[in-house]
Amino acid sequence: GTVHVGDKTYHFPTPDAAKKFAQEIAKKLNLQVTVKNGTWQVH
Score class of each variant (00 low, 15 high):
I25R: 02
A17F: 05
H43I: 14
G1H: 14
D16F: 05
N30E: 05
T2K: 11
Y10R: 02
F12K: 01
H4K: 14
N30V: 04
A18F: 02
I25C: 09
I25H: 03
G38L: 04
V33I: 12
Y10M: 04
V5M: 08
K19P: 00
T2Y: 09
K20R: 13
A26D: 01
K8G: 04
T34D: 06
V35G: 15
F21W: 10
Q32W: 07
Q23C: 14
K20A: 12
D7R: 14
T39V: 15
H11N: 08
W40G: 03
H43L: 12
D7W: 11
V3S: 01
H11Q: 07
K19S: 10
G1L: 11
I25P: 00
N37Q: 05
Q23I: 15
G6K: 06
H11A: 05
T34P: 01
W40D: 03
V35L: 14
N37F: 04
T9D: 06
D16Q: 12
V5K: 01
A22F: 02
G6V: 05
N30L: 05
V33W: 05
L29V: 03
V3Y: 00
H43P: 04
P15W: 15
H4F: 10
A18P: 00
H43T: 12
K8T: 07
K20N: 10
H4V: 15
P13W: 06
G6E: 06
F12I: 01
D16R: 09
L31T: 07
T9V: 14
V42R: 00
A26N: 02
T9I: 15
A18R: 00
V3D: 00
G38T: 06
V35F: 15
E24D: 11
K8L: 10
K27F: 07
Q32K: 12
V35R: 08
V35Y: 15
K19I: 06
N37T: 03
N37S: 04
P15K: 14
K36Y: 08
W40F: 15
T34Y: 08
L31F: 07
I25W: 06
N30W: 04
A18H: 00
A18L: 02
Q23R: 07
T2Q: 08
N30P: 01
W40T: 04
G1N: 14
Q23E: 14
Q23F: 15
K36M: 12
Q23H: 15
L29R: 05
P13D: 14
K20L: 10
D7Q: 12
H43M: 13
G1P: 10
L29M: 08
A22R: 00
V3E: 01
